[in-house]
Amino acid sequence: MPVTDEAIEKIKAMIVTGELGPGDRLPKENDLAERLGLSRNSLREAVKALSLIRVLDVRQGDGTYVTSLEPNLLLDAMSFVVDFHRDDTVLEFLEVRRILEPAATAMAAAHMPDEQIADLRRVLDSLDEVPTIEALVQNDLEFHRRIAAGSGNTVLCSLLDGLSGPTTRARIWRGLTQEGAVAKTREQHTAICDAIEARMPEVARSWATVHIAGVEQWLRSALVGEGTQPR
């Protein structure tokens, strides 16, 4: 194992075991390097790497601290990678959404507070009868964001939030080119909201699967049929 990787593993072990917790300050560099049997250079490289993925916070003139370790903070690194996706990976992002989002929707049906469900219904009702594609997509993003938050699982919510960006262009492309896309989106969103409101997790899961799989299936057909990709 490379020396830097070994140093990262040793610091991670201190956090995992609870020796260091959120907000704790790391021991001084000399003391920590000696304690872990590391060179100061390898320790510095490990600290730099862990600060890049938001595990550690290096404060100049103050010291190095463990961050809050909140999921949304730690998943920033994933969002950074997602921002560099290529158009030919959009289908892969949709596949992951199809796996994760139905689970989040079922959890929302079981746990989402009544007032949040009412807000979700208001999001649907706020869309004009003949919306622009931009308004439809923004409404779609907000609808799915609220459901993910309503799952009550912050890790799942952060993952889905990170996955929503790469599929936005595909959503716009579908709205512009597929006949009946607006009506179909409205119908499926309403069915999902109805199932959540009725506290029917498995029905909500099924409708979410149908909804996302439909977008995925359409995109596969469009890419194959036209030899193009959403840009």
Rank of each mutant, 00 (worst) to 15 (best):
T4W: 01
A7C: 04
I8M: 02
I11K: 01
G18D: 01
L20P: 04
G21Q: 09
G21R: 07
G23P: 02
D24S: 04
R25P: 00
R25V: 09
R25H: 00
L26K: 00
L26V: 03
L26A: 00
K28S: 13
K28C: 06
D31I: 14
D31R: 14
L32P: 02
E34S: 12
E34D: 09
L36M: 00
L38R: 04
R40D: 07
N41P: 10
N41L: 13
S42F: 03
R44D: 10
K48R: 13
K48L: 11
A49N: 02
A49H: 06
L50C: 03
L50F: 08
L50A: 07
S51H: 04
L56Q: 03
D57G: 00
V58P: 08
V58M: 06
R59T: 01
D62F: 08
G63E: 08
T64E: 04
T64C: 07
T64N: 02
S68Q: 13
S68I: 04
S68D: 15
L69W: 05
E70M: 15
P71K: 12
N72K: 14
L73Y: 10
L75A: 07
D76T: 14
M78H: 08
M78S: 11
M78K: 07
M78P: 02
F84L: 13
H85E: 04
R86G: 07
D87G: 11
D87M: 09
D88G: 01
D88Y: 05
D88R: 07
T89H: 03
V90F: 01
V90K: 06
E92T: 10
R98I: 13
R98Q: 15
E101T: 11
E101L: 08
A104P: 12
A106N: 11
A106F: 14
M107L: 15
M107G: 04
M107Y: 07
A109M: 10
I117M: 05
L120W: 01
V123K: 10
S126W: 00
L127N: 10
E129D: 14
T132D: 02
T132K: 01
T132W: 01
I133Y: 03
E134A: 10
L136Y: 05
H144P: 00
G150V: 09
T154L: 07
D161K: 14
D161G: 10
D161V: 13
D161A: 15
S164E: 11
S164F: 05
S164D: 12
P166Y: 09
P166D: 05
R169L: 14
A170Q: 06
I172R: 14
R174P: 06
R174D: 07
T177Q: 14
Q178S: 10
E179G: 13
A181Y: 15
Q188H: 11
H189D: 08
T190P: 03
A195L: 03
I196R: 03
I196L: 09
E197G: 05
A198I: 12
M200C: 06
S206A: 14
H211G: 03
W218A: 11
L219F: 02
L219G: 02
R220H: 09
A222M: 05
G225S: 06
Q229V: 12
R231K: 12
